[in-house]
Write a protein that binds this DNA or RNA. Structure first.
Length: 397
DNA sequence: AAGCCGGGGGG
DNA sequence: CCCCCAGGCTT
């Protein structure tokens, strides 16, 4: 793109944006000024997450934590609880730590320089550029999934987009094109174009404000760009969830601070138990659900005699629970069974209910809660789904 | 360079 | 069922 073409491209893009941009709560709109804290908050939430999903979470966060200071002083459990359901829970802890750093190292002001922003936890090259340009008008480029797609089509980039070399090229294009005046609007325009017009499939080229600048729409089918290398299929695993109740209260444990659902709470869960335990739990199922066809959606319970190895599997489960928690279970009974999909795992959740016969809990992070009394514990969606099932079952025995 | 980290929207 | 999303971090 020649300098003259670049100028025309930016002008058309910005004109389109100023006419069509969405009224998002963290944006400066009709008189409302930008709030750098709001930009930091929104960018943390927007990582790998669509705008529509983020909006309600953003409102709840601003209400609970109106300023960086209030967020910095908040309890991590409270931050995680507000974040629950949004996914990538590390982001919530990074955001919390970033708020603390803004208070400690920047006098409570979100930095305007990319190099300062990059030092904040959870802030990478994209997020630093976004906050710098949108919140402070710093001349900085951004490259996200939208920008990659837009430039892959505009510049006819046919090499796989998800390699370091190609990403580096897209970044240099972005750096070269970003204007020194209104870089924030320009960056948001680029992303909004990708989100609403230059969509993966099918792109709405017929209403695109910059189609004259697009090589793909003139030389090929834009829909096949950008080209991505195939990713591997998800691994299939099973998580065995045990709802262990004693005197009407259920045991909850906190997950480790690293890995999947870090620091979130859950019913005691055996990840990837021996296969024979899973199969025998299935066989031992004392009831199965049969959906009737026709008018009613009622489920009918059908009693079945337990199979031979059920008792043995039960023993293995009870032994595992005993060794892990120091508690003796009684009559583990299958309760619910469903599949949960994440990006790189297909997790089958098998839940059992059991009562605690004896023993003394030997777990630092364990807590006992009633069925309607765990809302302050941040939990993953599948764990909450399991809890929901147990509550419904308890309400209608 | 590749793997890991969630959950939902939309075709 | 699939792909994708205002990515960052670790190995």
């Amino acid at each position: 793109m020649t300098p003259k073409q670049a100028k025309a491209f930016r002008r058309k893009l910005l004109a389109w944006y100023r006419k069509h941009r969405r009224d998002l709560p963290w944006r400066a709109m009709n008189g409302r000024p930008v709030n750098p804290y709001h930009v930091l908050l929104s960018e943390a939430m927007l990582q790998q997450t669509q705008v529509a999903t983020v909006v309600p979470y953003f409102h709840r966060f601003v209400e609970a934590f109106p300023t960086v200071q209030t967020l910095a002083e908040a309890d991590e459990q409270q931050v995680l609880t507000l974040w629950q359901g949004l996914g990538y829970y590390r982001r919530a802890r990074n955001l919390h730590a970033a708020a603390k750093a803004v208070i400690a190292d920047h006098g409570g002001h979100v930095p305007a320089a990319v190099n300062d922003l990059l030092k904040l936890p959870g802030v990478g090259r994209y997020t630093a550029g976004a906050i710098a340009s949108i919140a402070h008008g710093t001349k900085a480029a951004v490259v996200d999934g939208n920008v990659e797609r837009v430039f892959a089509r505009l510049m006819l980039i046919e090499k796989p987009i998800n390699t370091p070399a190609t990403k580096k090229m897209v970044w240099s294009i972005a750096e070269e094109l970003v204007p020194k005046s209104s870089p924030g609007d320009y960056n948001q325009a680029l992303m909004e174009l990708g989100a609403t017009i230059c969509t993966p499939k099918p792109p709405k080229c017929f209403v695109c404000p910059v189609r004259e600048h697009c090589r793909a729409v003139q030389e090929t089918n834009p829909e096949r760009l950008p080209i991505k290398l195939a990713k591997k299929k998800p691994k299939e695993v099973t998580h065995l969830v045990i709802a262990a109740n004693r005197n009407g209260k259920y045991l909850f444990e906190q997950r480790p601070s690293e890995g999947l659902w870090s620091n979130m709470w859950q019913l005691p869960t055996w990840e990837e138990p021996p296969p024979e335990v899973i199969t025998s739990i299935q066989n031992s199922e004392s009831s199965r659900r049969v959906t009737t066809r026709g008018v009613s959606n009622d489920t009918v319970k059908v009693s079945r005699p337990p199979r031979g190895n059920a008792a043995a599997a039960s023993a293995v489960l009870i032994e595992w629970f005993q060794s892990r928690f120091g508690l003796r279970l009684e009559q583990p009974t299958p309760t619910t069974d469903f599949t949960h999909q994440t990006t790189h795992r297909t997790i089958r959740f098998v839940a059992l209910t059991a009562s605690v016969k004896s023993g003394r809990l030997r777990l630092k992070t364990g807590v006992w809660r009633k069925l309607n009394q765990f809302e302050d514990l941040p939990m993953s969606n599948p764990q909450r789904q399991t809890m929901q099932h147990i509550r419904v079952q308890a309400d209608s025995p």
